[in-house]
């Protein structure tokens, strides 16, 4: 799967850290979106002009993402998608890319947007360093949150999809499903699961529950 590949090396000035260059470089596409973010919410924009809002994360985990969406009520296509994020380079680039993907070619329908996966965003970015996978998960979640908000506002409650999973950490909005995925991807300790999902980093109270779930899935799949 694309998100597990080594990121493609860019052609100029790769961004690396001092101690572990290979885990860090960003592709040219990532850098382009990072340095020239598309569709972010301008200071003079009005919230009332949008008919759906989504929010996920908290600055405590180093990432907070808010999205504002305009949906055409006739076609249910996303005509505008704006965002703000307190996040690293990958978070900015992922959200910028997602905002292009859902609005290009006349915009995705809400159903199409729901079918969008974090992996799709990663693929368009040409890969992200593995430890930054959660950034694309974050914008996927904000998008889903906004879609639910749209249906809530037009009172089509049956269309709201509450993921068949339980939120374990209300701060990072990490669910038991996220933890299951992390375990499947090889994160078998609390530390590794936190690296992938950031669960409990801003909310340590949930950690005993998280450890319980990790143990459960570890035994289920690898036991």
């Amino acid at each position: 799967m694309s998100h597990k590949q080594e990121p493609i090396k860019g052609t100029q000035g790769d961004v690396t850290t001092a101690d572990n260059a290979k885990s860090w470089f960003y592709t040219d596409v990532v850098k382009d979106h990072f340095f020239n973010p598309r569709n972010f919410m301008h200071a003079d924009a009005h919230e009332e002009d949008f008919n759906a809002i989504g929010k996920v994360g908290s600055p405590a985990c180093g990432d907070e993402l808010r999205v504002w969406m305009k949906v055409d009520p006739e076609t249910e296509r996303i005509t505008e998608f704006r965002w703000k994020t307190f996040g690293c380079g990958s978070a900015i680039a992922s959200t910028s890319m997602a905002s292009e993907m859902v609005t290009e070619n006349g915009g995705m329908t809400l159903d199409e947007a729901r079918a969008l996966k974090p992996q799709d965003i990663m693929e368009r970015l040409g890969g992200l360093p593995q430890r930054k996978f959660h950034c694309s998960v974050l914008c996927d979640k904000a998008l889903r949150d906004a879609i639910n908000d749209y249906y809530r506002r037009i009172e089509q409650f049956d269309k709201i999809i509450v993921e068949a999973s339980r939120i374990i950490d209300p701060v990072s909005k990490v669910t038991d499903k996220d933890i299951e995925e992390a375990v499947l991807e090889g994160a078998h300790t609390l530390e590794l699961v936190q690296q992938k999902t950031k669960v409990g980093i801003g909310n340590p109270g949930c950690l005993p529950a998280v450890e319980e779930i990790i143990r459960f899935y570890k035994e289920k799949y690898f036991g």
Binding site: F34, F86, G87, C88, G89, I92
Partner: peptide
């Protein structure tokens, strides 16, 4: 209000 890593990368550029 901003995140350090993003700032470092912008400064790097």
């Amino acid at each position: 209000d901003i995140e350090g890593e993003a700032m470092i990368l912008y400064l790097d550029a």
